[in-house]
Amino acid sequence: MFRKFFTLLILFAAISAETNAQQGLHISRLQNFPALPNDTAYGNITYQNILITVSNNTVFTFTGSIDVLLSTRPATLDTLYSDSGIVHTINPGDSLTLQAAPYVFNPQSYDSGDNIVVIWPQARGMSFQTDSTVIVVHFVLFQNILDQQKLRLSIFPNPTQNLVRIQGMEKYKIEYVRIFNAKGIEIRKFSGILPDELSLEHLNRGIYFIEFRTSDFVYTYPLILE
């Protein structure tokens, strides 16, 4: 199932790249960061020597400081790199490689299984266009395996076009369902008596997060809208 989802994600990214190439400062390469298809990320392990390549895909020279931020789920923001005020210069078409601080995969930020991770540079010192990069991280925390097996909630189809169906919702007392865009901004909320199908009409195609909240847990799924 994962291979199918990941293949669809790659196909979607390729289609998006043809029509919407990354603009401004963006992450063009990420080394020693455990991401699919080659690596698995493990909880509470410190990862060293992560290298981040920031590229300037504009006709303007960037001069300023850079933070590199990442988001794994709505309202969750983490700093992968902060330069403490060092001034960098990146000319048009050039790149700069930065070494991140040691990084620990916090179980409060990652779900067991596949996580869509959005990474982007944040310019400081001048106003400059930036763009995000999306990767997939498979996260494993052994004590969560039993909880993962107990959960019987799924969404389909994924990718989808204008609606999503929820299977297993009748087994839980869902307080509400929220949909966030890739940068964690809430764009739609469903509450009260929830239908088995949620409308996604009038949303632009892209990567979203759909969050289910009960009195006992919050669970977030990645969702691709074609």
Rank of each mutant, 00 (worst) to 15 (best):
Y176E: 15
I187W: 01
F33P: 06
D78T: 14
P121D: 12
Q148E: 06
G206S: 09
S55F: 01
A182L: 09
I15W: 01
R188P: 02
S199I: 04
G24A: 09
I119S: 06
I210G: 05
P107T: 09
E211W: 05
D147H: 11
F128G: 01
V137G: 06
S215A: 15
L194V: 11
R213H: 12
I52F: 01
I90E: 06
A21H: 10
Y176M: 05
Q23E: 14
L203N: 11
V134E: 08
G206T: 10
I27N: 05
F190C: 06
Q148N: 08
D196K: 14
R73L: 00
N91M: 10
L9N: 08
W120S: 08
I15H: 04
V140M: 11
I135V: 15
A75K: 13
F156A: 14
D147F: 05
F6Y: 14
I50W: 11
L51P: 00
I155K: 09
I174S: 12
F139V: 05
V118K: 00
G85D: 04
Q108S: 13
Y110S: 11
N57I: 00
V140E: 10
T130M: 07
I193V: 04
Q167Y: 04
G206H: 09
V134K: 12
D196R: 12
I15R: 10
S109G: 05
A13C: 06
I185V: 14
F139H: 08
L153C: 05
